[in-house]
Amino acid sequence: MSKHRIVIEPSSENSNYWKDLWNYRGLFYFLAWRDVLVKYKQTAIGLLWAVIRPLLTIFVMWFIGWLFESKVPQGIPRILLVCAATLPWQFFSSSFSEASGSLVANSNLLTKVYFPRLIIPASTVIVCLIDFLISFVILLIIMLYYQFVPDVKILLLPLFLFLALVTSIGAGLFIAALNVKYRDFRYVIPFIVQFGLYISPIAFSSADIYNSTRIPQLVKYIYTLNPMVGIIDGFRWCILGGETPLHLNPFIASITVSILLLIMGIWYFRKMEKSFADVI
């Protein structure tokens, strides 16, 4: 008979899940396209928002860093140091919060059609990725203004962008699945994003933390567990060059946390996925 045989059973592990996901890539594309279209509809300045929002954050974080006199490596303008960190942070915070709320925002789809639910949070991240690429213009302009020429390491940037993607999808999937059942998480997300802005190396650099004698060793360890630390340090290392070295051990710790987040996020999402339509 037909090659599309579907077996529906109570708790059967759908062995075709990843194949299904591939078959539904068209829907993934259309949902991402919808989010891109809708995002700046009926706004006067449209896409400019993708530049203005990170720009304002850069100024504020630059001001905080300047006020508290955080250290700036030799030969690098402070604004460039802040910018190289704010852009990945902005990408993480927006894709994390969008992905976390995405299932509830699309509840009408969840209860009316079948598709691998992973598509929804994944497609919202695409919009944030596009915003990130647009906001990259800020960095280019600042570099041009200070006539700062990055070295060949900048070619490794996509790798760190990918890490940021992994982290935000991992955390996003986890919270999105929890949010379906417990709407409490809707209130947790802004806190994570707000605190993250201050405990990640944006206004300061990781070297300040590691070289400080006032900070206990334990706090330094905890600090490295923030996956954004490794990612932001990586961005700075790629863009600014040798003056902002990549601390290897903390970096490995951060990456490990990112990957664990992704694995846990997917695992929990897959576990809860079947009951989404029942409890949403």
């Binding site: 579907i6 077996v7 529906i8 059973e9 109570p10 708790s11 969840l110 209860t111 009316k112 059609v113 079948y114 079947k274 009951s275 339509a277 029942d278």
Partner: peptide
């Protein structure tokens, strides 16, 4: 869209 509690289809 939802999974059954028992049975098979």
């Amino acid at each position: 869209i939802v999974t059954p509690t028992k049975g098979r289809i």
